[in-house]
Amino acid sequence: MTDTENGTNTWVAEEYVKVNSPHVKTALAALALTGDALERGGTFAEVGCGAGEIARTVAERGFEVWASDASPSMVDATRQRCAGLPVHAEVRTVEQLELPRDGFDVIHSSWVLHWVSEAHEPLRRMAGALRPGGHLVLQWTGAQPRSEGTGLFGILRRLAAAPKWRELFAEVPPAMRDYPADDVAALLTDAGLELVHYEPELPHPFSRKKGTPLTADELAAMRVRFRRTWFASQAEVLGDRVDEFLDEALDALVAADSTDPHHARIVARRPR
């Protein structure tokens, strides 16, 4: 299910949290790579706060948190989860986000970048919003090298644009975008940050060597994730044909040997 704000379909928090626990774990693992930064407290920006699990965790560790998400449902869930804590949550897309220069000790964004229509300027704003010694923590999908093409997301976009599906997807086209890890790393370096941790191929349950198929159970899990995350906004538009589309999508990915979503993780720091 989705909710609608200003004509844009976005996720409902109750549906997203059903498949989000692995993402919370990876976010905490990524934040741990900042060394003792999470023990010092300070100011924390959560770009794409989801249902507020990370915002609550860091607020309980002594941070004042500014959280944002494009989904009103997610922001409501964050406010409820973080009630009584120093967490300020607002509805805002990454493209609209304005961050004060030198304003934060930690900026975190996990599994959001691939939903951003143009990420380069937002990334530069994040880099500029770090205080000296501050950390930027990023995780995202669709980070395969540019030489490998658009990978999984490209296949899904091409399927949605096929004559059979084009009219149904016209209202809410697939929004996933590819941002190669080496491009993002270069942009952050050019913005004056130093890379603390660079992992351009983060292991994923659906990662496989070429020619190694997923099991039936893994394909079923991938199908559930597609419906509740990557195609959550399209499920209502597709109506009773959503299962037909998801089956075709999985068949296309298996045929192309492209079930790996290509996750990446970068932790960068502004020098003191």
Rank of each mutant, 00 (worst) to 15 (best):
L214I: 07
R61E: 00
G103C: 01
G7L: 09
L113P: 02
A232Y: 03
V87S: 04
L187Q: 12
P174E: 11
R81C: 03
K209I: 07
L253V: 10
N6P: 01
A119K: 00
P145N: 07
A32E: 11
R56G: 08
V196W: 01
E90D: 14
E14A: 15
D105N: 14
R272T: 12
G52Y: 12
R225Q: 11
P200N: 04
V24K: 14
S233L: 05
D240H: 00
P173M: 02
M126G: 00
G7E: 14
G128K: 07
P205R: 14
T212W: 05
T150R: 15
R157S: 11
D3N: 09
V254L: 07
S73C: 02
E98A: 11
A59E: 07
E121N: 10
W165V: 03
E148K: 09
Q96Y: 04
P200F: 07
G103K: 01
F153D: 01
A37D: 00
V91C: 11
R158T: 13
V184W: 00
N9H: 15
A181G: 03
V254E: 13
R223S: 14
S110H: 13
A13R: 00
R79C: 10
I155L: 13
P200K: 05
D257S: 04
R166I: 02
D3H: 06
G103R: 00
L85A: 10
A55R: 07
G128I: 01
R158G: 05
R92E: 07
T34E: 03
A55T: 02
G84F: 10
R225C: 06
L202G: 02
N20M: 08
V17G: 05
F245S: 05
A83S: 11
K164T: 14
F226K: 05
E201C: 08
S258T: 10
V267C: 05
L246F: 08
F245D: 06
R40I: 02
H88G: 00
E39K: 11
A127T: 03
K209H: 13
L123V: 01
V224H: 03
F63C: 03
Q80W: 08
W11K: 09
E248D: 15
L187I: 12
H108Q: 11
E244K: 04
L97M: 10
C82G: 07
P213L: 13
R157V: 13
R269K: 13
W115D: 12
D105H: 13
G239R: 00
V65Q: 05
V112C: 14
Q234H: 06
R158N: 13
H23F: 15
V47Q: 00
Q96V: 04
V24I: 15
G42F: 08
G142Y: 04
W11F: 14
R269F: 09
E244Y: 01
L85V: 13
Q96C: 03
F153W: 15
A216V: 06
K164R: 15
P22R: 06
D251M: 12
R177S: 11
A161P: 05
T78N: 12
T189V: 14
D251W: 03
G149Y: 08
S68K: 03
